[in-house]
Amino acid sequence: MTKITPDVVDHVTKLCRIHLTNEERKKFTEQLNQILTYMDKLNELNTENVEPTSHVVPLENVLRKDALSPSLGSEKALANAPDKHGEYFKVPRIINGTE
């Protein structure tokens, strides 16, 4: 059963900002289909009245005081930056609120 077409793969790779070559795209589509078909296994289970688990730890209300600690400072903050300009991170031009 084919679940995803190359078009869906294009949508997904656009969402996660990954470019694929045509060959990669083809292989990727096949592999994702194979994996997703396997995942259909879960549909065998009736989970209607089952609460989802998002955390396994028995914790709630983990909070910290609103107390200041020293920041890193811009020099250290920028030390790993691929490109910078003065004290700023530098990126290709952003146009009209889109990327």
Binding site: V8, C16, R17, I18, H19, E24, L32, I94
Partner: peptide, 29 residues
């Protein structure tokens, strides 16, 4: 003259290996 979206796409495509990209794609889907 690389656009921001090209920078993102090329950086991530070149920076991640195949298995990582596969899993990111799967999770995104």
């Amino acid at each position: 003259g690389l656009s921001l979206s090209e920078m993102y796409g090329k950086t991530r495509s070149e920076g991640f290996g195949v298995e990582v990209k596969r899993r990111i794609g799967l999770g995104t889907y």
